[in-house]
């Protein structure tokens, strides 16, 4: 693995007047990784990508692609990437095929056979004029245009918005194939199943601040595990067990949350006659809600 990360944000901040859209983001994406950028609407995902791509200038800090600052040297930085915008607009008078020709030519080349294959897999009709494409079809133009270049780095901003579930599945297959070929992907999304299915790591943005990042396993470990058990006889004593909270005991069943190691809990449960026991890590959706709940304070030092 190369020592230079494919993407490096260093204290990247972007302000629009009084509004801080991105607040001291520091994040690396390494070669061959798929990193999911999660966040609700207005969290700063699109600003993050546009700043990375040099379409917007960081107010402070840096954003680099393979060591190149895309704001200062856009042409050099863009040699290594392809991009799928979230809200695709196309030239109304050009056909889909002409748009793919254009984007392929300006990319400095593309795999023609792969373009044909993608056109077929995404069931895309390139003969129609841009103005007649639905949102999903416009999205397909951008997806095919990006993937057909086989660029080492793919930046994607909610790439599947407007796609039907079959096409979403096709898209996820393409991402896996890209990863297998060694391509690096930064995927902004709020479709949790998509992120869960394809991403190696997740970065969670809220109000422009990176509130958490790591593998899904890391994130789950940072959060409480849900434990459910049934028992007979006397209930186990759980008052002083480390990490245990939200205990509900009723009618021979126990439900609780445990933070950190489960060893003290298991020892406490062993004192009772336990019949069934299940432990479930939080789903990404539960993590998502935990991070995005507006009533929750941003973690101290987040974004720093």
């Amino acid at each position: 693995m190369s020592t230079t990360p494919v993407v490096r944000f260093t204290e990247t901040t972007k302000r629009f007047g009084e509004l801080t859209a991105l607040d001291r983001l520091t994040l690396d994406v390494h070669e061959g990784e798929i990193v999911g950028l999660l966040g609700p609407n207005g969290a700063g995902k699109t600003t993050t990508l546009r700043t990375l791509l040099g379409l917007m200038q960081p107010t402070s800090g840096h954003a680099r692609i393979m060591g190149v600052d895309a704001w200062r040297e856009p042409v050099e930085a863009h040699r290594h990437l392809a991009y799928i915008p979230g809200d695709v607009t196309v030239w109304p008078e050009l056909t889909g095929g002409q748009i793919l020709d254009l984007l392929g030519a300006t990319s400095g080349g593309y795999d023609e056979a792969y373009r044909e294959e993608l056109t077929e897999r995404f069931n895309f009709d390139p003969r129609k004029k841009g103005r007649s494409y639905s949102k999903g079809n416009r999205q397909k133009v951008a997806i095919i245009a990006a993937l057909m270049t086989r660029a080492p780095f793919l930046a994607m901003d909610e790439p599947t918005s407007g796609l039907d579930p079959l096409m979403e599945a096709t898209f996820q297959d393409c991402l896996r194939e890209a990863k297998a070929r060694g391509q690096t992907i930064l995927l902004s999304s709020h479709i949790l199943s998509e992120v869960e299915a394809v991403c190696d790591r997740v970065a969670v943005l809220r109000q422009g601040v990176l509130v958490e990042h790591g593998t899904l396993a890391d994130l789950r470990h940072l959060h409480a595990t849900t434990v459910e058990a049934t028992y007979s006889g006397q209930p186990p004593r759980l008052d002083d067990v480390a990490g245990v909270e939200d205990v509900v005991i009723a009618n021979g069943s126990i439900r609780l949350q445990v933070q950190g190691s489960t060893d003290p809990l298991l020892k406490a449960l062993a004192t009772a006659e336990v019949h069934t026991l299940s432990m479930r890590e939080p789903t990404l959706e539960e993590l998502f809600h935990a991070y995005y709940d507006e009533s929750t304070e941003l973690p101290a030092g987040a974004g720093a």
Partner: peptide
């Protein structure tokens, strides 16, 4: 508006695009 176009001329790059948009 969704009638397929018959063999449209390829757009060969940004100069070609600029020419077409200006010509329109």
């Amino acid at each position: 508006t969704d009638e397929p176009s018959r063999s449209p001329r390829p757009v060969r790059g940004h100069t070609d695009l600029a020419t077409r948009l200006t010509a329109a």
